[in-house]
Amino acid sequence: MAKFMFSKRKKYATIPSEHSKVDVPEGLMQKCDKCHKIFYRKELKKTLNVCPNCGYHHPLGAWERIESLFDEGTFKEWDQKMTTVNPLDFPGYDEKVKKDMQKTGLNEGIVTGHGLINGQATAFAVMDSSFRMGSMGSVIGEKIARAIENAKEASLPFIIFTASGGARMQEGVLSLMQMAKTSVAIKRFSDSGGLMISIMTHPTTGGVSASFASLGDYNFAEPGALIGFAGRRIIEQTIREKLPEDFQTAEFQLKHGQLDRIVPREEMKDLLTTLLEMHEKGRSKA
């Protein structure tokens, strides 16, 4: 891994204490999910959960992501208090959501807001796959749509990090309709000249990949991320054929023309900074 990796990131944002409590679990050591090498947790925190040995990108929590990108103290959250209801009266749904709220310290599988990335103002949304697998229900759709509308009003760019297993089953068709809702919002934003950058992280599948995740002016992905619409198992059952190992990875999607770039976590902040600067300069020339 490159030595310069965090040289440009001058400051860290401070994480509110209730978030850091849950983001830092017990235990001193952690095993890499891929190469199984053992590291100090502190070491992995420094590399933003990327394995120093094999480069595997472990999931990054919503607030860790924000901390890794935004200038210290600049990130302001939107709609923090919005919470999920049970629109279909789906048995057991309330309990499941409550449990994940306690487990993650988040109110839903997404954080939206705005702040400065190396001095560049941007609207922002980041999904967290530790909350109901990042599945999309009404709250996620609503918070994204509002963030995009806010970006449009304030003439800010919009950056989104996706991580989602797809639709939230327990919200049925309302979950499906969030795909439409977010896409309509993006159309309005795009027509107003807004810049949208989508970064797909592991996993970005189902209804999320088939809506806002794929609708950025630039679509990026983290290395090794699973990206696709239908699940591997259902495809294998349907076509009665074993799929290749790299099927639906970020690398596979790049090869098939579905991504602009694969961006390692260590390079993310620099790339976003450069893109934001270029678009801001281009806009002021217009």
């Binding site: 896409s183 088939a210 794929s214 619409f229």
Partner: peptide, 26 residues
């Protein structure tokens, strides 16, 4: 539903659906 096939994924099933949602909006 969308066809859960290998070729469909290779040719950008997600993008094709997403594109329609966005363009129909406008």
């Amino acid at each position: 539903g969308a066809y859960p096939g290998r070729a469909a994924e290779e040719r950008g099933q997600s993008e094709a659906i997403a594109r329609n949602l966005m363009e129909m909006a406008g």
